[in-house]
Design a binder for these strands. Sequence first.
DNA 1: ACCAACAACATACCGAGCAGTATCTTGTCA
DNA 2: TGACAAGATACTGCTCGGTATGTTGTTGGT
Lengths: 219, 219
Amino acid sequence: MNHQSADAEVARPRRRVSNVDESRAVIISAAAECFMRKGLDKATIDDIADEVGSTKGRVYHHFRSKNAIFFAVYRRAMELCFEAVEPVFASDSPAAQRLEGMAHAHAMVMMEHLPFQRGIRSGVEMYLHGSTTAAERETLTELIGIRDEYERLFRRVLEDGVADATLEVDDVPIVGRAILGALNGLTDWYRPRTGESGAEREAIARSLTRTVLNGVVRR
Amino acid sequence: MNHQSADAEVARPRRRVSNVDESRAVIISAAAECFMRKGLDKATIDDIADEVGSTKGRVYHHFRSKNAIFFAVYRRAMELCFEAVEPVFASDSPAAQRLEGMAHAHAMVMMEHLPFQRGIRSGVEMYLHGSTTAAERETLTELIGIRDEYERLFRRVLEDGVADATLEVDDVPIVGRAILGALNGLTDWYRPRTGESGAEREAIARSLTRTVLNGVVRR
DNA sequence: ACCAACAACATACCGAGCAGTATCTTGTCA
DNA sequence: TGACAAGATACTGCTCGGTATGTTGTTGGT
């Protein structure tokens, strides 16, 4: 019976893959939460398992190692950044406006996905401190590449701003890092208030964006 | 004999204390270096001992625990910041000029004492992640207080700027954090070049300072 | 309808790395 | 010269990443 498809041995559904991805995603979120609360090193695999109400077995069924989990968190964090910022970057407004939108979007992502964004800070650490296997180091290099690509979005809009005369930048790389530094600092001091904070976050993002765009000197 | 002071049993010199302090200072510097290279958690006591060409015994002779070493590094880091920035803050120029000097000085400290300054980032982490003894937590609270006091220097100069109309700030705390975030980001990306870099550092500090003061929008 | 077979976990265990300690040695003072 | 600081050596106990193995539910073939 079961002749829905005559002889389609190829591309067989192979269980509900969606469920697998979801299970992975749940673990990744739990890991991000743990990394934020206890730090990358002090968070244990058991902590992550507890967070999802499970045991080590489940975690290691989906991930090779603790580093592999961290890489997944890192990757997701960068995805969230790109999803929010790249559309603004790709729009066709003057550079100054695009930069404003990008800074605002970046700030919002920082606040709304705090656990993920805090995780990636520690990631740069690990990259420098070595002590990973060859395969892991390869993955890390790739992830660092993604981050560099993201930073490049900000540098390019700065260059565009010099070109269309809406921005004034003496040293594009350094200024780019200054802007991202000001925004990334959110992960150090921002903590979500209990209760509604959507509008509050908007206000914070606006203040930060204003500062990086206009500075503080009265004109 | 030894009647330099008739019967001064009190306040006896008690060996060469300077030597003790120096030994401590050497360990603290070595620890800062290790914390920077391998991260706070992955740096071991043996690493620190190796860095000074010694053994664990020496380290534990001067420090109760690994956390105690970290606290010393943190404290020294804050001292370096205050020594550089507070004189500028206390000068009697217009607020805009003082802020410029403070930002520049802070940036220079970040670069010139990179190991120390990187260490204190992880410190905030620890504070949040608990897992310290009661005594340690008390010390940590004190250190966090020092850091807050330091941040307050920047907030106060911002307020002064609003008062003397040289600065334009909508939200002092947030803008203060934005500025410090932009400058502290140095610890994430600045690495000392081999060879002379004093002038290079000045240039970086100037670009950062210009950006936080004037922003990037062309006027 | 039944049963391999495999995925998706749980349980039990191991061993390395490392903070902390206990003890021993030596140089340096009074 | 004895007493203590300064440091070296040797050892321990525990945490935690990783593994090996056991259990169960689901599925696809017959």
